[in-house]
Design a protein around this nucleic acid. Structure first.
Length: 663
DNA sequence: CTAGGGTTAG
């Protein structure tokens, strides 16, 4: 069915052969010239670019395939393989597999390369099982599989999150000497380890491959660097970055820099991100569309959509064409700020740029309307998706579901939830349940939430700490302390470990009930239970103490926060100031509090818009906000803009101040 | 003619 859609592109030149291919619905082809050149190409095969590289439409490929099967004698195995590869490169995996089957049926030549392509197709479709089956079939036909085959299978298992099996395969290959792992195979295995978050083991494998005489390359390092960045361990990533350059002599590329820039942006280390950007350009590596997309997206997530647009114009100026990802980030950025007109403008811009909005575009916009409680707009858009020939996915449903709960339309929400459950292609996921439970609690239907939770049964979801946290929080906020406590106690019975969230929720719960001794008791046991208090814990505890007028430990807690560089959030800040102005707290605390107010970063960016409580705060955080924005403007945009003009005068050098030279 | 790395939505 998927293929039917793809095949219907416009065609002009009449077709000459007979139709044999079941995928081929059209009688005409734009590939007439292509076909002609194919014939001359097969006569003289000296060209460095075969016709197969020119194939961009599935139609043309299928047409060509049809011709090839009718040529007598049949073209070489190389031709068939190239064609199969062309189809695969277009990501029409199921089509490739079908063509392969046809080849077998008509006795077209196949070899190891053909098999490897087909195995890759299976793996890319998350059917690694089938990949193994194809391997077995090839084996019976006498095909000797190589390191390419096994790397592909390894990658397939990793794509399906079957990391244990991947590890087992990897070890088996080495032990039984089925193939000698090379840098690609090691890198694939390293990616698998990174994917499940065991960076240490990934790095250990990096060391091991070195010891076994297999030199890592830039891709190997990029894999680990990216993983570290995603786990917010940018400094460790920078260490590896240094190691690869100064120790291994491996030259970083645009991917290395893009990962690092993303990691730095994510932590709001704009200054360092700019330095990286500058360094990469100094090294003669230009940012590409993905790099710019990372910048655009990071700025958007920081609530700075118009600055993101400035980056967009810079990228255009530099000859890079923004793509769907760029525009989708901008849509999301404007939605985040509740500027729906601008978001819609960008959405419409997509078509004006000759692109077609995808589900991500729609879902972002839908989310924007939902968050703004413009539920009619949201519903309209929801229907527009199917009118435009697309299908809702679980994200679409979840988004709308959340919107319906937010405006209190519980009945509609539950109906939609049932629709998802009845759907034969989509099923509710953990996020769906989280949204429904949270939505019900939000609408004071804790009992309904609980009974739904019990109904899920004793499966994985029922042991999801996130769902427990939602229910505990919901029960507590609805004043059902006993329910909250009972749920919390249920955790240890089930052998589930509370996480920081759970503790934060319970501490907040006790705070609301005035049970500060209980709150303190939990706070004190956190460290020993392996989940040390975070910024939120301190804020929640402080708010409870302030609310219940327990002033004696406040200063000590603030001191501790300062030691760990945690910041006070807006509500805590507001309460502290209130108590100082009313005289119940000493104003000597102001100096300490001042140190705990975020000066930059995501928190500061959202301080005024998201967490405003009192007038005093509006004034205070307003100035922080302005400073922050100006700071970014100076550091970031001016810097990027400057790169255009300063470039000539800058000698080629490597001087990133935050990278310690290992020389 | 075959394998591996970086970007967007709940």
């Amino acid at each position: 069915m998927k293929i039917m859609k793809v095949v219907s592109s416009s065609l002009t030149i009449p077709f000459r052969g007979t139709l044999k291919n079941p995928f081929l619905l059209s009688q005409k082809s734009a590939s007439g010239i292509l076909l002609a050149s194919f014939h001359s190409d097969s006569a003289s095969n000296h060209g460095h670019l075969s016709v197969f590289h020119k194939i961009t439409k599935l139609d043309d490929a299928l047409q060509l395939f049809d011709e090839m099967t009718q040529t007598q004698p049949m073209p070489s195995v190389v031709k068939f393989t190239q064609l199969l590869q062309a189809v695969t490169k277009m990501k029409h995996y199921s089509c490739s597999i079908h063509l392969f089957k046809q080849m077998l049926a008509i006795g077209a030549p196949v070899n190891l390369y053909t098999f490897n392509i087909v195995i890759k197709c299976c793996c890319q479709m998350s059917c690694t099982r089938d990949g193994f089956a194809v391997v077995a079939y090839g084996f019976r036909r006498g095909v000797v599989h190589n390191v390419y085959t096994f790397s592909t299978l390894l990658n397939g298992l990793i794509l399906e999150d079957r990391i244990l099996e991947a590890e087992r395969l990897f070890k088996k290959l080495i032990k039984q000497k089925l193939c000698e792992p090379n840098v690609v195979m090691y890198t694939t295995m390293i990616k698998g380890l990174c994917k499940v978050g065991i960076n240490d083991t990934a790095i250990a494998l990096l060391r091991l491959m070195n010891k076994r005489g297999c030199k890592p390359n830039v891709m190997t390092y990029n894999t680990i660097i990216d993983s570290l960045c995603k786990d917010e361990m940018v400094d460790d990533a920078l260490k590896l970055f240094n190691e690869m350059i100064f120790h291994k002599g491996i030259v970083p590329d645009v991917v290395t820099y893009s990962s690092l820039i993303r990691g730095l942006c994510y932590l709001s280390r704009w200054d360092d991100a700019v330095k990286m950007l500058r360094e990469m350009e100094d090294e003669g590596i230009s940012p590409n569309v993905i790099t710019y997309n990372i910048l655009v997206d990071s700025l958007c997530k920081e609530g700075m959509a118009e600055d993101a647009q400035t980056v967009l114009s810079i990228m255009v100026e530099r000859g890079k064409v923004p793509d769907l990802v760029t525009y989708n980030s901008l849509i999301d950025g404007y939605c985040l700020r509740g500027e729906m007109e601008k978001a819609k403008e960008i959405f419409d811009l997509i078509r004006m740029r000759g692109l077609v909005p995808n589900l991500v575009s729609y879902n972002s916009l839908l989310n924007g309307y939902c968050k703004k409680l413009q539920i009619d707009e949201a519903l309209h858009l929801f229907h527009e998706i199917t009118e435009n020939g697309m299908n809702h996915n679980v994200v679409t449903y979840n988004t709308l579901l959340q919107g319906l709960f937010r405006v209190g339309r519980c009945k509609d929400a539950r109906e939609l939830f049932n629709e998802i459950r009845a759907h034969n292609q989509i099923s509710p996921d953990a996020v769906t349940y989280a949204i429904v439970l949270e939505g019900l609690c939000y609408n004071h239907r804790v009992d309904e939430a609980l009974s739904l939770f019990r109904m899920i049964g004793e499966n994985k979801l029922n042991s999801d700490i996130v769902l427990y946290n939602i229910l505990v929080n919901g029960a507590s906020k609805c004043g059902k302390l006993d329910t909250a406590k009972a749920l919390f106690n249920e955790l240890s019975i089930k052998g589930l470990n509370p996480n920081v969230w759970t503790y934060n929720v319970m501490i907040g719960c006790f705070g609301r009930e005035g049970l500060m001794r209980e709150a303190q008791r939990l706070f004190l046991q956190m460290e020993g239970r392996g989940c040390p208090p975070n910024r939120v814990t301190y804020n929640v505890l402080l708010q409870g103490l302030l609310k219940n007028k327990h002033f004696d430990t406040i200063e000590m807690l603030l001191q501790k926060m300062d030691e760990q560089s945690f910041s006070v959030d807006a509500s805590t800040f507001s309460m502290l100031i209130d108590h100082i102005s009313s005289g119940s707290l000493d104003d000597s605390l102001l100096k300490l509090i001042g140190k705990l107010v975020p000066k930059e970063g995501k928190e500061a960016a959202f301080l005024p818009s998201r967490y405003v409580k009192g007038m005093l705060l509006v004034k205070q955080s307003g100035s922080i906000f302005e400073n922050y924005r100006n700071c970014i403007r100076n550091q970031f945009l001016v810097h990027i803009a400057k790169l255009r003009y300063d470039r000539q005068g800058v000698p080629n050098r490597r001087d990133p101040p935050f990278v310690k030279h290992a020389k």
